[in-house]
Amino acid sequence: MPTYAIRVNGERHQVEAPAEMPLLWVLRDLIGLTGTKYGCGRSQCGACTVQLDGSPVRSCGLRISRVGDRSITTIEGVSVGGLNAVQRAWVAAEVPQCGYCQPGQVMAATALLTENPNPTDADIDEAMSGNICRCGTYQRIRQAIHTAAEEG
């Protein structure tokens, strides 16, 4: 079985995995970072969203062999020393209901704000529509993104 050296949240990990194993399961089951969630396995729901060099990707659809030396950020590493602006806004607005999809939502929103510090509602629709929330927290997500944008 091949071995891959990947960089997750600034740390290097050696993992032994089949080339086609999705990053999602490498993170969850081999490295033990369970904040990234399994929802569909087909890049349909966004629960597994992580960032690859800062861009949001669905880790369930990304084979370990395709990661290369790009830097992976998961929910566990998205903020250093406390919550980031998106997470603070999420808590202030009490976005989470069940909370299962929220790591993916936070990863997608953080990536959005990095790329576009002042997103319009249309920008938010575009960036966040890949992330399903079955509890229906969308309205608060929208509000929290605007709040996080204002706080910069």
């Binding site: 089951d29 033990g32 970072l33 369970t34 904040g35 990234t36 969630k37 399994y38 998961t74 929910i75 566990e76 903020s79 919550l83 997470q87 999420w90 808590v91 009490e94 976005v95 989470p96 909370g99 299962y100 929220q102 790591p103 936070v106």
Partner: peptide
């Protein structure tokens, strides 16, 4: 009042069933 579990739910620390890890566990 602030809800007790908003923070662990945005940091990935909240443990859902699928996140349980027991030593020696198989999947």
């Amino acid at each position: 009042v602030p809800q007790v579990d908003s923070t662990p739910k945005v940091t990935g620390e909240a443990t859902f069933g699928i996140d349980v890890r027991v030593p020696g566990m198989l999947f």
